[in-house]
Design a protein around this nucleic acid. Structure first.
Lengths: 138, 138
DNA sequence: TAACCAATGCAATGGAAGTGCATTTATTGT
DNA sequence: ACAATAAATGCACTTCCATTGCATTGGTTA
């Protein structure tokens, strides 16, 4: 069990207080968060810092974006089984129309999508919308 | 073969010159268009009018939105086989990373997506990114 | 023809993404 | 330990798209 500091360093991310806080914030969230979510959680921090921190995390591949169709970019930590650095990885995300939360179903694989002749598939974004387990009362 | 006027009226959309022009513009486009695309095509028209016209078309279900991950909403005419008013319809869209165009592959059905227990799927948005047939040279 | 309602146009707002630059903080070499 | 260097942070600003309020135009109907 590595510490967060060691983990960040292993990814060539310089450890700062702010980055540790943002990482912990993302880690304890079970859902994808927007920049504003992070902003609200750390009122002292500047929006730009958060923006660039997330961007750094993305480049170092410990965070990936989710476009769930709400028009606002969301972010979530990459987990085991999340090969988001691989172009052909299929991102399956679920957006709850009730609580408005978006989660990453990394363990839930779906079949390869076929495209018509002449088309070359490089990347697939799949967002399922509906009611999540918490809101459906199960 | 109904005229456009008759078609719009059958959908309870009042026919105006502007609406006819916008409808024709959408009809002759083979790809999904942004508001700005329409704006550029009709320099005389106000952006608001275009925006509200598209919104009316959406409400009357002759146009549907596409979120292809570029961050800019695109629109396209619903066609035969496009049951976008049905919640469970699977929207398959293809976004070309080369020419940046997005098309609606309505004839291309894909299998039902399964979600974990407790989750209720109401709607699926699937965007495949890659190289389109024109750009792949086939 | 007057009254009404929808469509249009203008102006302005809001939210999110992104950038330039100065400042602070951390790292490296001597 | 200290100077030189590079990265991280904070502030201000810009841009782009989506959206709304309000006044005006235009078409329908009684």
């Amino acid at each position: 069990m590595k510490t967060i500091e060691e983990f960040l360093e292993s990814k060539n991310i310089r450890v700062t207080a702010m980055r540790l806080l943002i990482y912990k914030f993302l880690a304890e969230k079970q859902v994808a968060v927007t920049l504003s979510d992070i902003e609200n959680a750390f009122e002292k921090a500047d929006r730009t810092t958060l923006y660039r921190t997330i961007k750094t995390f993305e480049e170092k591949e410990i965070v990936h974006q989710i476009d769930d169709g709400t028009g606002i970019t969301k972010y979530t930590l990459c987990e085991k089984g999340c090969n988001c650095e691989i172009e052909t990885d299929l991102h399956l995300h679920f957006h709850c129309n009730n609580c408005n939360e978006t989660i990453c179903l990394t363990e839930h694989k779906i079949p390869q999508i076929k495209v018509p002749d002449g088309f070359v598939s490089e990347n697939v974004n799949l967002v399922v919308k509906g009611i999540c387990d918490k809101c459906s009362g199960q």
